[in-house]
Design a protein around this nucleic acid. Structure first.
Lengths: 165, 165
DNA sequence: AATAATGATTGTGAAATGCAATTATTTCCT
DNA sequence: AGGAAATAATTGCATTTCACAATCATTATT
């Protein structure tokens, strides 16, 4: 049983990109995470093209959250996204404008709003789920099956830990 | 010898963030990468605060590339960053304006430019390296030593593979 | 009842980003 | 050699993103 992921570059082998060495960044988690984000986001944008939630960070998460948690408040979405409320408010504006979710004032707290998915929004959410799953299959197909769980677990762990800080 | 990373959440355990479930995103590489990027970038911004290369993606990489590759062309930097040339041009403008690098027309090709680090730029590059290393130590300290190489190798691999597409 | 805290919106300005058009130089092709 | 095509880079927008301050309404605290 192999202890290391399949076919990974050796630790001492320099990382060459476009013929250039990456200096300290070569050994930096932060660099790869930031660079990967750009590529993954670009790819996801392409896949979502035409769908009302295309481009930008947040709309997809917000839509799925509303679909999965009827009556959710904007501030709860802001907490997950780690964004401020003005930003989240405008995000919700666009989802409402596009007829994906609806916004009513909450019955138990009249300051708060209660967000619910519309039938159309639910359809879009379903399509979003399909696209996300498809991207996972197609875009990340180079990750060997036996490495997937471990890699995902590490990312999860990093995600949950860094959120705390 | 353990085969799995230390203390990782079980695969079937739902990921709860701010009390909410994440739907499909919970199992999506893309979600964690995108979310991690936001946190890591924010943290890096804080650490670089005051330094002429703070905030934004690209200045750090560009500075280190110029420092490590005297005479490098803007287009080479654009290739590494996967950005268009106008964008890269303006990035270089700011580095030049701040006295970190200097720009001359290349001798072998008068269309092209040749970028070189200034003494001040080199100093900043050194400080950037120290900060990056420090972030790796402090921010990612939750990754168990025995997991680090493997996690980094997976990220590297993902990075290199996704660049090809 | 007065004050503080909470949930959300509006206003605004600074950056980031992306596309099209332009200029200058070099390479390629007859 | 001469002209077309390709390459390196810049300039000029037009959009979008994003954060901060100020404001308004409602609820909680004392």
């Amino acid at each position: 049983m192999p202890e290391n992921p399949t076919d990974t570059p050796a630790q001492d082998e320099p990382v060459i990109v476009a013929g250039l060495r990456l200096d300290v960044l070569e050994g930096a988690f932060s660099y790869y995470i930031r660079a990967l984000d750009a590529v993954v986001s670009r790819d996801l944008d392409r896949r979502m093209e035409g769908l009302e939630v295309a481009r930008g960070k947040g709309k997809i998460t917000a839509l799925l959250l509303v679909d999965g948690h009827p009556g959710i408040r904007p501030s709860a979405i802001a907490a997950v996204l780690m964004r401020d409320r003005p930003w989240t408010g405008r995000l919700i504006d666009t989802l409402v404008t596009r007829g994906l979710i609806e916004r009513t004032t909450s019955t138990d707290d009249q300051r708060a709003q209660s967000l619910r998915i519309t039938p159309h929004g639910h359809e879009v959410a379903e399509r979003v789920r399909a696209i996300v799953r498809q991207q996972e299959r197609e875009f990340f197909d180079f990750i060997a099956p036996q490495d997937r769980d471990q890699f995902l677990a590490q990312l999860k762990r990093a995600y949950l830990r860094t959120r705390e800080q």
